[in-house]
Write a protein that binds this DNA or RNA. Structure first.
Length: 200
DNA sequence: ATACCGATTAACT
DNA sequence: GTTAATCGGTATA
């Protein structure tokens, strides 16, 4: 079942980051469908969060996407090489977002292998935000795609499905976000969530 | 027009 | 544990 608009437009970004664990992030790029179960996320709490690109209400051509309605894809280029995928949450003008940091490959593994130029998938293949986007064929030029409206478009579609995976709160590990040392006190916030399910 | 830097990764020692 | 790769975004002038 496709996650609805109302899932994304809620106001508690850390709750949404938790609830995205166990959901399936899917893409259809040039007709090639790939999906992975989300196992790691980070919440970015908008204008009050020093780690967020939108801290202090900063609006630039890049961050403008985060000010859209929840359910929009915010994707940007990091270190000149990696596309990092986020889903925008909350209502329009409130620039909250959740970074997807890890997936377990579920569908289209053959396509994923072709994308990374490898023969087999390993434990690490879907770990790390750069690898997530690479496996799923997500490019930063897709920023602004709508995770509900794009469904069905064979060229560039990105969406998230609920496939009924139940995540016990005890299976979720919480901690500080990765790579945000520049954020001062906000670097210590427990906004990172990792799903340690069976076999993970 | 120019300078600095990053929500990372892979390949090293 | 360390480091090179790599370039668009952003601030400053």
């Amino acid at each position: 079942m496709l996650l609805s608009r109302s899932f994304y437009t809620r106001s508690d970004v850390t709750l949404i980051a938790r609830e995205l664990l166990g959901k399936y992030l899917c893409t259809s790029i040039d007709g090639l469908v790939t999906c992975g179960m989300i196992c790691e996320t980070e919440a970015y709490a908008g204008v009050t969060d020093r780690a967020s690109h939108a801290f202090g209400g900063r609006r630039t051509p890049r961050t403008e996407t985060m000010f859209r309605e929840g359910g929009t894809a915010y994707i940007y280029l990091c270190y000149g090489i990696h596309s990092l995928f986020n889903v925008v949450t909350n209502r329009a003008e409130i620039p909250h977002a959740v970074l997807i940091r890890g997936i377990v490959p579920a569908e289209g593994t053959k396509i994923m292998l072709r994308r990374i130029g490898s023969k087999t998938l390993s434990e690490n293949s879907g770990t790390g935000p750069g690898r997530v986007a690479r496996l799923l064929g997500i490019h930063y030029s897709f920023s602004g795609l709508d995770l509900i409206e794009s469904f069905g478009d064979p060229r560039h579609a990105v969406w998230i499905e609920d496939r009924g995976i139940l995540v016990d709160p005890g299976q979720i590990q919480t901690g500080p976000r990765i790579g945000v040392g520049y954020a001062g006190e906000d670097a210590l916030l427990p906004y990172r969530f990792v799903f340690h399910g069976k076999g993970l």
